[in-house]
Structures are given as C-alpha cells and as structure tokens.
Amino acid sequence: MSGLLSSSIARKFAMALSALFLVFFLLMHVSINLLSVFSEDAFNTASHFMGTNPLIQFVMQPVLMLGVLFHFILGFILEIRNRKAQVVKYAQNNGAANSTWMSRNMIYSGLVILLFLAVHFVDFWFPEMNYKYIQGNPEDPTRYYHELVEHFQNPIKVGIYVLAFIFLALHLLHGFQSAFQSMGANNRKYTPGIKKFTMGYAIVVPAVFILIVLFHFLNH
C-alpha cells in the first residue's frame, strides 16, 4: 500500500478512526430506534427528519457508506497481510491462554456484521431508496413506524437480527477499546476507565437493539 496508509501504524490509526466513527453512528442509530418503543410519533418525526434532511441524505449518508466500506476493505487487507506474516501455522496454539476470543476473531465477527448489513440493506435501505428516489413517491411522515414493526413479525428475521447484534457486541468488546490503544491513548490513569466505558457500550448498545427488535416482535 502506498501514500497515507503505507505504514502499519498509519493503517492501524486509520482503522481506529473509522471504527470510532462507526461506533458514534451506532449510538445515533440506537437512539432513534429506541424512540419507537416509547412513541410512534417521535420515531416517525425523527425518521422523517433523517430521511428527508438534505445534509443527512446527501452528505452524511455517503460519508457513512464510505466509512463502512473503508473499515471493511482495510480490515480485509490487514487480515490478508497478517496471514502472510505467518504462513506456517503452529501444530498446537493456545490462544486462550493469553488473549480473548473476541480479539482473535475480529475478522469473523466482522464478516457476520457484513452479512447482516446485506440483510439490513435489503430490508430497509433498498426499499427506502426505491420508495423515495426511484418511484418518487410523495413523502409520508407517518409511514416509518409501521415499516419498522412490519419487519419484525417474522421469528426467523428476528432471530437473524438478534444473532447479528450478539456478534456486534463481540466485535465492539474488543474493537472499541482497541481503537484507543491504536491511536496511542494508553496510560495508567485513563485506560482502566476507558476499558470499562467501552465494555459497557459494547454490551448496552447491542442489547438495546435486541430489546427493540424483541419489543416489536412480541408487542404486535
């Protein structure tokens, strides 16, 4: 690789930056979704704003797409390079003795999230783009809640979402705190607090996503 990403540390830093961006996006996503549990109107208003605001639609959305693509592509490139760095594998390797399962399997939890994103896009994003920009339907600010609820009536679909959020939690459990280390933020004073905060986030955010899905499945 050349240019800005030519060194291992630069790639590490870029991976961490894109990760933090996606972590922040998750917080926004879960906050809006959570509204659907408390108020149909509030959820519709927030979704309508997100779906029609030009800044969000034509600036933030492409930036988010690029962020997601960047994180996945760089993740795959790093994985390929890392595999080349150790061609002959050990006959016996006791990884559990010195590291967490999450930290050793980021590529697999990441792959599950990537597959989930495909399902998620087919469920929500493609129909949304089709509705708004291809069919050019007039905007209906009250449609979002029903569209959301409709998707979570199939137990298989609910199962897929719950499983994906569990893998998201596993990915975040290592990834979030790891981003700080990659950016050089590791010291005796702040790191224990950062680790606790990131672990809490990694569990709470996916758990709230799961609860929202289950709420709509069980309530309708």
């Binding site: 291992s8 540390i9 790639r11 590490k12 830093f13 790093l78 390079r81 890392n82 080349k84 760095a85 150790q86 990884g95 003795a97 010195n98 590291s99 967490t100 930290s103 050793r104 980021m106 290592h174 790891s178 280390q181 990659s182 950016m183 050089g184 933020a185 590791n186 010291n187 005796r188």
Partner: peptide, 29 residues
C-alpha cells in the same frame, strides 16, 4: 514482513520481561 498489530494483548502476557502494551501506544504516538 511482520504483521499488523490488532491489540490482542497476547504479546504482553507472554513476554518474559513484562513489557507493557503502553509501549506500543507510545510508539504509535
């Protein structure tokens, strides 16, 4: 041809001299 660090922390655990991951963060900085 060494690989990219993914912060598993395995090195710190297995290091016979107890070298801390803080050193990697310092190098990154």
């Amino acid at each position: 041809g060494f690989g990219n660090c993914t912060n598993t922390g395995a090195c710190e655990v297995e290091c016979p001299k107890g070298i801390s991951l803080e050193n990697i963060a310092r190098m990154n900085r």
